Simulated assay, not measured.
Amino acid sequence: MSKNKEFVAVYGATGHTGAFVIAELLRRRLPVIAVGRDMPRVPAGVTARIAALDDAAALDEAFADCAVVINCAGPFLDTASPIIEAALRVGSAYVDVTAEQASALSTFELYHERARARGVTIIPAAGFYGGLADLLASTLVGQHSVDDMTVAIALDHWWPTKGTRKTGERNHVPRVVVKNGSLVPMTVPTTKTEWTFDSAHGVQEMEEMPFSEIITISRHLHVRNLRAYLNTSSLNEVRAEATPQPVAVDAHGRSAQTFAIEVIAHDSAGIRRAAAQGQDIYAVTAPLVVEAAARMLEPSFARSGALSLGEAFDAADFLRSVGSEHLMFELSAT
């Protein structure tokens, strides 16, 4: 890492997820710069910089001394490209937290070779959606080929943030799954099923609802068929206009929401399962992206290009580092 690039920039720092990321960077004593289109409030002692998405010069100036840029400002269909372009111009690594399939796919396709040529790392979809399932799947199967893989997620509630609402209104790109080794449009109307979680969530009615984990997993793992499901009750909540925003219930600012995520792989060797449980999908995104930033700050880190979390790092070691404080996870085989 260059001596004049020591900071981690957080774009969208005053948003709901951005605030969790700033707090986690401060907790880990990593030097942080808060960047956004406006800065109504930032924690004491944090430097704030103003840079609009359509102001390339301001973005370059904001990121010039930053080794890593974390983008928490959605919709990422609108924000990812201008921030990545600025990061490439100034030679900063980039991480975002998109759940949007089209944004993650576009980042991989458009920026992998350019990032490699520039010698920087770009990691889209490194949060709860996209990143966590990719880490679990990578730990589960490594470089082995898998016939069928399913990602199942249960939330006891989904209280959406303003950013989630805005992204839902913006993102009308058809969702995709992996079938016979290729990305194909999800069947509509969607498939529904039941899933028994090995957690307090128990038996849940599930609806096929793929997010960016389809893109991150299929980017580097050899999976012939890949689908993802979310419990129907949480989807009903996030779709209802009257559902409130999350409310903090502890000293860390987390809501009372709990989640369970399971990744099941089927192949000739049998059935393998990786699972994780935790509290607050927005809050748990912070340790995931901050752990990625911290690892990219290490002098020994030498990966470049557009990579998923499970591709850029040792997935099992990454999960152990995050799980000690923020997650409970396990692996099993039948």
Rank of each mutant, 00 (worst) to 15 (best):
S92I: 02
S92L: 05
Y94G: 02
Y94I: 02
D96C: 10
V97M: 13
T98R: 06
E100S: 01
Q101H: 12
A102G: 10
A102W: 00
S103M: 00
A104D: 13
S106I: 03
F108G: 02
E109I: 08
L110D: 15
H112D: 15
H112K: 11
E113M: 05
V120R: 01
T121F: 11
I122L: 15
I122M: 13
I122D: 11
I122V: 14
I123C: 00
I123Y: 06
A125M: 06
A126S: 12
G127A: 09
F128D: 01
Y129V: 09
G130P: 00
G130I: 03
D134G: 04
T139C: 14
S145F: 08
S145H: 13
S145I: 00
V146F: 05
D148H: 15
T150V: 11
T150L: 11
A152H: 13
A152C: 08
I153F: 00
I153M: 04
L155A: 00
D156A: 09
P160K: 07
T161G: 13
K162E: 15
K162I: 07
R165E: 12
T167N: 07
G168E: 11
G168W: 08
G168Y: 14
E169N: 05
V173P: 12
P174R: 03
R175T: 13
V176R: 14
V178L: 08
V178M: 10
N180M: 09
L183T: 00
V184A: 07
M186Y: 03
T187H: 07
T187L: 08
T187D: 10
T187W: 00
P189M: 04
P189Y: 06
T191C: 01
E194R: 15
W195P: 01
W195S: 01
F197Y: 07
D198I: 00
D198T: 06
D198H: 11
D198V: 09
S199A: 06
S199W: 06
S199T: 10
A200M: 10
G202H: 07
V203Y: 07
V203C: 09
E208F: 02
M209L: 12
F211I: 08
F211D: 14
E213D: 07
I215R: 02
I217W: 06
S218V: 00
R219K: 12
R224D: 13
R224F: 03
N225M: 13
L226C: 05
R227L: 02
